[in-house]
Amino acid sequence: MTPNSIGRLVALGAFALGMASYVTAGLLPLIQQDLQLSVALAAHLVTAFALADGLLSPVVVAMLPGHWLRRGLLTALSLFVVANIASALSQQLWTLLAWRALTGVCAGVYMALGITAANASVAPDQRSRTTARIMAGMASGTVLGVPLGLVLANHAGWPAAFWLIATLAAVALIGLWRVLPALTTTSVPITRKLAMLKDRRVMPVILVSLMAAIASLGMYTFLAPFLQAVDGDGVLPLPLVLWVWGLGGIAGSTLIGPVAERMDDARLTGYLATLLTLALAALPIIGHLQPWLLLLPVALWGAVGWAFQVPQNGALLTARQDHGDGSLAVALNGSALYLGSALGASAGGVVFLLQWPVWTLAVLAAALAGLATLVQWQLWRRAPVTAPYAPDTAAVD
């Protein structure tokens, strides 16, 4: 297989990860009925995955030695397969919670190491395209895989969705085990890895990712009540809006690769943040004028939201290429996304608690995205000229 095949296999694993990240929410009614749980208890399954991914996966990545790039990737994916099989076999809430938490940790570790390994296996001019392919795989898992898993679960029971995820991940695992070379990175002491938290080229990037995630994913959480508020006649079906958002995400994360190869990461992120601000700001305006036209900013929102992380991860890998801990920077960026989703949902809850108009959600989201845009353009103006990401890796016999 060619080096590009490694990126495709990592993308297949990311497809399974995208399914695992979001399918549980759709399975809650089936799990609740089968295990005789309350809604509140069943919802903890989603929280367990998100918190484990967001909080624990960077810790695991930080603890891995440099020569564990290949081994760590394959181990994370192997445990991901095992955890989903065990989830399918679980018949008690607490065991299912434990396995979903392990799935979340493995998912975060896999994405961080997978992006690093895939970029290390291709030429420098193909790295943005490779990262875009992986993000497109995750987007496809969310948009296409989740509905497929839910249809299967409705016909064969909720464990069937986890069996499907495990099968897809196992195929990626076998492929990567056969073709991925034993890449190694420079060994970095844990104290030097912790110094990343003081790196002015890293933390501002993660801050921008966090603000964009609060705006984008927070707004996505409340898309249903927002749509109901601006489209009181119900002419625009919610499933259609969700599909348009997701298909926009697939298109954006696929098409951003060639663009990222021709533009520096900081500048590209600035343009994407600007487009995200405009798309969110347009939601309440267009929604009140003509609900069907709402599909246009929704598609743009999905496209730039998913494309956003391609230049962000590229900037982080470039910033830490001389330190040998780029995978940890990517893991921290992933944590910012999950934290941003949680903060966005909490902030939206405050809006409802205060009984503000629902369109306020989009206005606040656009304002925060606008703030992220201003921060990003400042970063671009101050950014030094650096060479593209060139990881200090070598194949070990």
Rank of each mutant, 00 (worst) to 15 (best):
69 L>V: 12
148 L>H: 10
22 Y>E: 14
154 N>R: 13
103 T>G: 15
141 G>F: 00
199 D>Q: 10
151 V>D: 09
60 V>P: 00
129 R>S: 13
266 A>W: 08
377 W>K: 03
136 A>P: 00
196 M>Q: 10
103 T>S: 07
227 L>C: 09
158 W>R: 12
84 N>E: 04
115 I>Y: 02
241 V>F: 06
167 T>P: 07
393 T>L: 08
211 M>N: 01
129 R>L: 12
23 V>N: 02
102 L>Q: 04
192 R>K: 13
314 G>Q: 12
98 A>I: 08
381 R>V: 02
12 L>Y: 00
125 D>H: 13
53 D>F: 15
17 L>R: 00
335 S>M: 09
39 V>E: 12
381 R>H: 13
134 I>D: 03
312 Q>H: 10
331 A>E: 11
248 G>A: 12
197 L>I: 06
199 D>I: 05
113 L>T: 05
384 P>K: 10
17 L>N: 08
115 I>N: 03
271 Y>A: 13
32 Q>G: 14
350 V>H: 10
115 I>L: 05
334 G>Y: 03
33 Q>R: 15
267 R>T: 14
82 V>L: 11
124 P>V: 15
3 P>K: 12
308 F>G: 02
279 A>I: 09
211 M>W: 05
87 S>K: 02
294 L>M: 14
218 G>C: 04
367 A>E: 03
16 A>W: 00
149 G>A: 06
194 L>D: 01
261 E>D: 13
177 W>A: 15
154 N>S: 13
103 T>P: 00
62 A>E: 01
394 A>I: 08
212 A>E: 04
332 L>S: 05
127 R>G: 11
214 I>K: 03
203 M>F: 09
149 G>F: 01
358 V>E: 12
193 K>T: 05
338 Y>I: 06
37 L>V: 10
247 L>S: 08
134 I>A: 02
304 V>I: 08
127 R>M: 10
219 M>V: 02
204 P>E: 12
171 V>N: 10
101 A>P: 02
319 A>S: 07
145 G>E: 08
28 L>C: 03
7 G>W: 02
101 A>V: 01
245 W>L: 15
158 W>M: 10
374 L>Q: 07
285 I>G: 04
122 V>W: 07
341 S>V: 09
372 A>F: 01
302 G>T: 07
